[in-house]
């Protein structure tokens, strides 16, 4: 009996579906096992507040501790640290919609 094309195609799909199941199983098993315990312990013991991902500026090294006037951290209208500054969202309350900077004239009313 010769192998039909449909057998090959369905076999390939079955194999791909099995690998997806294997991937899900891998995520379930090793994801739980690999809790970042060492980092979490260091955070608890030293009282750390931020991830050491972007070290180029104060407000990117410790975004959670940064002043509310970021990104103009160094002086008003100072240049932003590129590229991290552009990849970190401005605070939710920042900008006209958040009531941080009102449109001209509005404050006079």
């Amino acid at each position: 009996m010769s192998i039909r094309k449909s057998d090959l195609a369905l076999g390939f799909l079955g194999l791909a579906a099995l690998s997806l199941l294997a991937v899900i199983a891998h995520a379930l098993i090793s994801g739980d096992a690999r809790h970042p315990a060492a980092a979490a312990r260091l955070v608890a013991e030293l009282g750390l507040t931020d991830l050491a991902l972007f070290t180029e500026a104060r407000y990117t090294r410790h975004p959670s501790q940064a002043d509310l006037n970021t990104p103009f951290q160094d002086h008003p209208m100072s240049f932003d640290h590129f590229p991290t500054g552009s990849l970190i969202a401005p605070p939710a309350r920042f900008g006209p919609t958040g009531g941080f900077a009102k449109t001209p004239g509005e404050g006079a009313r």
């Binding site: 991937v23 899900i24 891998h26 050491a52 180029e56 590229p83 991290t84």
Partner: peptide
């Protein structure tokens, strides 16, 4: 792009999650 960059950059692997 996703992690960011800097001179001192942590080397880390993420725990699988799906």
């Amino acid at each position: 792009v996703l992690k960011g960059w800097s001179v001192i950059y942590p080397q880390f692997s993420l725990a699988p999650h799906l």
